[in-house]
């Protein structure tokens, strides 16, 4: 029974990955990782004796533990990778924010110097631009 649930889950995961990739919500390079993972779960749920065999090789008394420990480790590595990705993105965001702030300050300054920071409104009254 549990293997059927597992197999169904992996199929759903596979479907979700395909759908998300098509909607550009997942990049191809991440999608391959998820496709690989869901295929692995699918294979293990179709041929559960592979887990027993793996457990035997590794000398584990209760083979399903191999599956659980493997799952926890994969999750850990994935989370670490995500944290790294967040840090990289944050660095890029900081750099962009800094550059944007400097540029808009310089722009405001040069507009003020050339006197083009004021625009004439319909009433004919000069109004300062949003900068």
């Amino acid at each position: 029974m549990i293997y059927r649930v597992l197999g169904l889950t992996s199929l759903l995961l596979l479907g979700a990955v395909v759908a998300l990739t098509r909607r550009r919500l997942l990049r191809e390079r991440h999608a391959t990782l998820w496709v690989g993972l869901s295929l692995m779960i699918l294979i293990l749920s179709v041929w559960p004796y592979l887990i027993n065999k793996l457990g035997y090789w590794l000398g584990v008394a209760y083979p399903p533990t191999v599956f659980l420990v493997g799952g926890v480790l994969v999750t850990l590595v994935l989370t670490l990778r995500l944290t790294v990705t967040v840090a990289v993105l944050e660095g890029k965001l900081i750099r962009l924010t800094e550059e944007q702030a400097i540029l808009s300050s310089l722009l405001a300054k040069s507009l003020a110097n050339t006197g083009t920071d004021s625009i004439v409104t319909e009433s004919g009254k000069a109004e300062s631009s949003a900068l």
Binding site: L93, I94, T97, E98, Q100, A101, I102, S105
Partner: peptide, 14 residues
């Protein structure tokens, strides 16, 4: 004085 306004809060380092 020149005022540079950051669009989002970056903290003292930024």
């Amino acid at each position: 004085a020149t005022v540079i306004r950051l669009a989002t809060n970056l903290g003292i380092g930024g």
